[in-house]
Design a protein around this nucleic acid. Structure first.
Lengths: 349, 349
DNA sequence: GAAAACCGGGTAATCGATTACCCAAGCTTC
DNA sequence: GAAGCTTGGGTAATCGATTACCCGGTTTTC
């Protein structure tokens, strides 16, 4: 291991400067030297040391990305989109997971900064606890928040228009005849969680329908199942459930159906994200689609413009989502009156 | 950006050597200097440049990991396990996806080697096409294959005993009364695909049951659904289906049930991996569990022992899997509940 | 024909952290 | 009291690639 440009230069019988120039082509060399250097490099299997290059150039050609977890298909999808976006720019991605922990997140930020990434794309796991580490990082290096953001502004952000997305969902189920609706989402530790709940409440009020007290847990299938059971156990079902993401929606649908409730005949369910298995579940999920490719492209573009510690006020770029109607929501035209879902066993409240 | 140890030394009024020693503690300094340096470093917000350190030390404190895709929950699970394993060793992980393409994989290997990772953990996407790049990398840096491996040996490997796992599955369905079985897996581009099919055929022969011609596609839910439809369309169903992984199994179960076939009453289905949503699907999936934590621990341990280009013959460490019986396979003896306290056909988490 | 411009090659500085090596001061030891 | 040891600080080399700067030779220009 470790053939350096000095070895190549020696083998080719030239100076390191000539070897470097021949290999990089940044200054002309005679064809003969070019040829000798190329041959020597090939024979020795020379591969430039990116660490040395990074030190000299003061740029590593890498950008860091931190997401809350790689078990969630939404994040893996967006990571893949960012990767694709970076593909031909020659920079590559250092991917980290914060494991939904602000402490781990802060540590990851530290090491990425120590490794002198040229930029950072982060989806901060906690709207409050993530603030200091993210602001500090934004002071040192170009940083763009993607999907989630920290409270108080202070760093640029690209994401979906969560409120608009939830409004689409609410308006859709109301158009399908729903008079009572409920939101099943995650506890309010992230911006997404808050905006989606807020959007839900405003949209329900605007539509003049009954909004039940929301159920808040995690962005997981498990929580969806649990919430579905909870709904079944606690009196008459609402006409529609708007979920914080697809994982919750899939779990919820499953729990409802196992409990004997028909979806969408008894209850409409709408998800959020449209990634992973939304199309593949049974029945296919009506959901709000996040424009992941555009979000990734926009994040990368913005990152190229941001300067570290720029005093310019932070931008927030919210991209419009769209509703994808599949089979967990009632058709708009169905004017049949709402019929209460079948209650299993228990009576309550 | 960019406060160096020189700045700290100047602010503290000492030499860079003293500053370095005070910060690293690798040689004694007077308490007074230690104090002054610590204060200067804190005030300036000094953070050592990992790039410079790496160049000087000839070690980066990173290991690279390449998996075929981060969309597959098996790979994200094993990545998380490796991350956990590395957590307290101070090294961190550069994660890459080869996107199931040997060309992308070769490029990723190049850039990881250029960045002088201290080691590599890779699940090569193609048993044949991945060979040259992986062997070349193994010559330059300690390398351990995890899960999948390349043909012809030449690099150490840690994984599950695929043959034994499939045997468990076959023996289980046979014990449940199956007389005809079929394998639904992936095309034979990876070692896992080949070993699982081979194991299936041998186990079926040993058990003396009819083995139908296998259906081979991708390790995806989509392929599982397609294969399930294919089974329904092509004459009498076998008694049991052994799947190449859980994604396939979940898709297949869904397709069968939508087609009116009852699982496990008409057909038993067994998956492989036991990650992601195996427990959460309906009905919960009987599957072969890969001991992911042990595999990750073993891979990291082995990586610490491997030398680059070691002429010693490559090791293959196959860890024994276990069968997790849930509700997609028939009970071994009629009337015995497979999971005590749970009724088949009723969902529980 | 001389000055200027150009061309292509080499030497050494640079990036930042670490540390081999040197040196001065204070001890110990006989 | 002199030789030797210990202690702790500073100077400069090192890692490898790039490039500012210099230099000798050739070509161009007036």
């Amino acid at each position: 291991m470790g053939v350096t440009i000095h070895d190549v230069a020696r083998a080719a019988g030239v100076s390191v400067a000539s070897a470097s120039r021949a290999l990089s082509g940044r200054r002309k060399v005679t064809p003969e030297i070019a040829e000798r250097v190329a041959r020597a490099a090939a024979e020795l299997g020379y591969q430039p040391n990116a660490v040395a290059k990074a030190l000299r150039d003061q740029t590593t050609g890498t950008i860091g990305m931190i997401v809350p977890g790689i078990g969630n298909p939404f994040f893996t999808t967006i990571v893949e989109a960012v990767e694709r976006e970076l593909q031909n720019s020659g920079t590559d991605l250092l991917l980290c997971s914060s494991q939904y922990s602000p402490e781990v997140e802060a540590r990851r930020l530290e090491t990425l900064l120590a490794r002198r990434v040229d930029g950072l794309i982060i989806s901060p796991c906690d709207i409050e606890a993530s603030v200091p580490a993210v602001l500090d990082a934004a002071r040192r290096v170009p940083l763009v928040q993607l999907d989630r953001y920290i409270g108080g502004g202070g760093a640029d952000w690209v994401g979906v228009d969560d409120e608009a997305g939830v409004s689409l969902a609410v308006d859709h189920v109301v158009a399908g005849g729903a008079r009572s609706v409920i939101f099943v989402g995650s506890r309010l530790v992230s911006s997404s969680a808050r905006l989606r709940l807020g959007g839900f409440e405003r949209a329900a009020a605007r539509a003049g329908v009954e909004a039940r007290a929301p159920l808040l847990g995690e962005f997981t299938l498990e929580w969806g199942i649990e919430a579905g059971r909870g709904l079944l156990d606690s009196g008459p079902l609402p006409d529609a459930v708007v979920c914080g993401n697809d994982e919750i929606a899939v779990g919820l649908v499953r729990a409802l159906r196992i409990g004997g409730t028909r979806v969408p005949e008894h209850v409409s369910v709408v998800g959020f994200d449209d990634v992973g298995h939304a199309t593949m579940c049974d029945p296919p999920l009506t959901t709000v689609r996040q424009p992941v490719e555009e979000m990734a492209a926009e994040a990368v573009r913005l990152l190229g413009q941001v300067r570290a510690g720029d005093p310019r006020p932070a931008q927030r770029i919210a991209i419009a989502p769209s509703l994808v109607v599949r089979q967990t929501s009632r058709a708009v035209a169905a004017g049949t009156p709402v019929e209460p879902g079948r209650k299993p066993g228990k009576e309550s409240v």
